[in-house]
Amino acid sequence: MRLAFLASHGGSAARHITQACQSGELGAVPLALASNNSRSAALEWAREAGLQTAHLSSARYPNPAELDAAIRDFLVGSGADTLVLSGYMRELGPRVLEAFAGRVVNIHPSLLPRHGGRGMYGDHVHEAVLAAGDNESGATVHLVTAGIDEGPILAQARVPVLAGDTLPTLKARVQAIESDLMLRALRALAAEEVRV
């Protein structure tokens, strides 16, 4: 697999995946990272790691169709065949989704389909889990489609919701399983074990 990443902030998943590629833990090649945030730590890190980088945002491309085309052109031009969202806080446009159909991967901090959809990201998800009184949570790696958090599930991992859990404690428990779950899902996708 030839990987590209989209990130808005720190890009921790992109970093972990790139390290796994470099160590031989994941048989893939990281090529590029684009961010909608010109000051993101992910862009700085990716430049230092030798990845192709680009700042592509609505500030540079106010027309959504032009932004969608610019993102697609950068990603396709990088040589990537698989796109990983690493904390990317924007919806993908139809051109990007078409160019990488069946090869856009995202991780969501709940057991989809529970607590997914518009507005369900980051701390909002963990707050919803606690408010619902769920006895378990976890993370889901899924393929990205036009619907928010509606794409086919590649892998899930579960964690308990403990009595007395707060947003920080639950969040930490979920984040602790996300990196290995993403690697497992990417390995399955690379081995074509996943049937979409």
Rank of each mutant, 00 (worst) to 15 (best):
M1N: 01
L3T: 01
A4T: 03
A7G: 10
G11W: 00
S12Y: 02
R15N: 03
T18R: 08
C21D: 13
G24W: 10
G24K: 13
E25C: 03
E25F: 01
A28R: 04
V29C: 05
L31C: 05
A32F: 05
L33E: 15
S35D: 12
N36T: 10
S38F: 07
L43V: 05
A46R: 00
A49P: 05
A54W: 15
L56R: 00
R60C: 11
Y61T: 01
P62Q: 09
N63C: 11
N63M: 09
N63S: 11
E66Y: 15
D68Q: 14
D68F: 14
F74D: 03
V76I: 14
V76C: 09
G79A: 02
D81R: 01
L83V: 13
V84F: 05
L85M: 08
M89I: 08
L92E: 10
E98M: 07
A99M: 11
G102R: 01
R103T: 04
V105N: 04
N106R: 01
I107H: 02
P109A: 08
S110R: 12
P113N: 09
H115N: 00
G117C: 08
G119N: 08
G122H: 15
D123Q: 15
A132F: 10
E136F: 08
S137M: 14
S137N: 12
T140S: 08
I148S: 02
I153E: 00
R158H: 11
V159P: 00
L162C: 13
A163T: 07
T166A: 12
P168M: 11
K171N: 09
A172H: 11
R173E: 12
I177W: 06
E178R: 02
S179W: 00
M182K: 01
L183V: 15
L186W: 08
R187M: 01
A190C: 03
E192F: 02
E193H: 13
R195W: 10
V196Y: 09
V196K: 04
